[in-house]
């Protein structure tokens, strides 16, 4: 007999293909899980419209469930309410930092749309706040690029969204 809890536990093992330290639960992209008999429906939400990881994530979820013999899996996309970095778990933020990516700041603290306003971001390597924005866009849609003025390292910042 399948339980929803068992599915949530399995999902903790499905990683984001672009940031493999984070699970899909850490990312906050699983919106709902429901089980009816031997059929499972999972609702996911994209981080960014063009995020190429979304198709891979859906496939990885399917494969993970198939490993446990769960074959009737429906994955549904839901856009609204739109994903926000506020849904990222506390554990996920810590894992990001340990991985060398500055985690997103809480949205209510700072999320400006004004020109030339820089978000204060802490260097994930040395902990300094003396950092500067290099580029609003980085290696993936969800990140911006910063540089630490103290330890001189460049690093990715998971931007506030």
């Amino acid at each position: 007999m399948l339980s929803e809890d068992a599915i949530w536990t399995l999902l903790a093992d499905v990683k984001d293909p672009e940031i493999p330290v984070l699970s899909v639960l850490d990312m906050g992209i699983i919106r709902a899980v429901s089980v009816t008999g031997d059929a499972v429906e999972i609702v996911i939400t994209p981080t960014y419209s063009g995020c190429p990881a979304m198709d891979v994530i859906a496939m990885d979820i399917r494969l993970k469930l198939i490993e446990r013999g769960i074959r009737k899996v429906q994955i549904r996309h839901q856009l609204s309410p739109a994903w926000t970095t506020d849904w990222m778990s506390e554990a996920g933020r810590e894992k990001l930092r340990a991985f060398g990516i500055a985690p997103p700041n809480p949205k209510q603290q700072f999320c400006s749309t004004d020109m030339f306003v820089e978000e204060a971001v802490q260097c994930p390597r040395c902990g300094s706040w003396n950092t500067e924005l290099i580029s609003q866009f980085a290696s993936t849609a969800c990140k911006s690029m910063y540089r630490c003025r103290d330890c001189k390292e460049a690093f990715d910042h998971f931007k506030c969204h």
Partner: peptide, 26 residues
Amino acid sequence: STLAAIAEKSLKEVTYHRRWSAEWVV
């Protein structure tokens, strides 16, 4: 409502595009 959801989702990205391009215009 699907169109409304697409707009809601996209608007967050468009906000970055507008800011980034405006900074470059300046």
